[in-house]
Nucleic acid binder design. Structure first.
Lengths: 197, 197
DNA sequence: GTCTATAGATAGATAGAC
DNA sequence: GTCTATCTATCTATAGAC
């Protein structure tokens, strides 16, 4: 099930949990490259060495912060790929991703907006492939350039907009609805020649 | 006039021009915080000290890279604010920004996607105010949350999508058209109660 | 599990020769 | 204008005491 009630990265907890929450806040505010282990340690009120006890490298912290979102995305993609109709595939991806974004607004922005994260993921994980799967689900087979542009704008825009200050005071329920509306307006324009079976 | 034939940051030139072009490439690929002055110097085949001859600080380089785009944005905003009808204001902003993005795809992504750039601009410039002006032109007075969400998605999405690898092989003319289509689809949904005079 | 201490590398930045 | 040389601060990361 893709829809959960808790955010992917808990705001409170002990040890690693608090560390990841603090790191996420800093990553979202200053960027991964702009965040030092010293800042993370200071935010927790501990020393750098204490941080290194939990994670061996900075990359490990980045991966640990971002991993819950990636796993949820993988679940969403698999769920969507099991649907038979194109419309159901698109709908499953949209509802799943928007729910993920709204539930944890800064995490998705860090995941897809930070170049340092992209760099780490391209080395340590299979995220590019997952990203391609999701894009393929959105645009379908043999997409025209217009659909590719629309889907690119949508995926980037949703992630960044969810974290932006202008939507900060919009409630989860309402934001979800508006984002879904935007997504459908963007993707549903003219149907190509082939009909959906 | 907002539409120019040359990109805002020239690809070739001498001295400062080449420096800014190299810096932009690195900023777009690794992020500002992930780019050291040594990398910029190496890209030019010179030493760090040679870079410091042209610009006193790293922030100065960031500002110099991003400044042409900001100036163009200011021209677009002023041009749009002179229009009398809301529709003309929106159209002027959309055409101007999309032209700017397409003409120099990585520059706008760095300008609005990099947290380090945002940090520098909030200290050294009046970019937040300009950003608010453009947003206000897009959403109009007393915007409903749905319009704010749509405009946020649009502005973030256009910038990031213009630089993305998926649209890299789409020509300028065609990309411009698709982006304009997406923008109009996103912003033009239901009209509020007030009619446009 | 958290600390001190420190290594080793690299960051941004400066002085002054050429 | 571009260089060598160097400074200081900070970075990631490790070793080992408590």
């Amino acid at each position: 099930m893709a829809t959960q009630l808790e955010p992917a990265v808990p705001r409170e907890g002990t040890g690693r949990k608090k560390l990841l929450a603090a790191a996420l806040d800093l990553f979202a505010e200053r960027g991964v490259s702009g965040t030092s282990l010293q800042m993370i340690a200071d935010a927790l009120g501990v020393t750098k060495a204490a941080v290194y006890y939990h994670y061996k490298t900075k990359d490990d912290i980045v991966l640990a912060v971002v991993n819950p979102a990636i796993e949820e995305l993988a679940v969403i993609a698999s769920e969507a790929e099991r649907k038979r109709s194109r419309a159901a595939q698109v709908e499953t991806v949209l509802v799943g991703i928007i729910d993920l974004i709204v539930r944890n607004r800064s995490l998705y922005a860090v995941l897809q907006g930070d170049l340092a994260v992209a760099h780490v993921l391209s080395e340590h994980g299979a995220f590019p492939e997952l990203s391609n799967r999701i894009m393929a689900l959105l645009v379908g087979p043999d997409p025209d350039p217009g659909t590719i542009v629309a889907a690119s704008i949508l995926l980037s825009g949703l992630g960044e907009a969810g974290f932006g200050p202008r939507v900060a005071d919009i409630g989860d329920e309402e934001l979800r609805g508006h984002m879904l509306g935007c997504a459908r307006r963007l993707l549903r324009h003219r149907r190509p020649s082939a009909a959906t079976p």
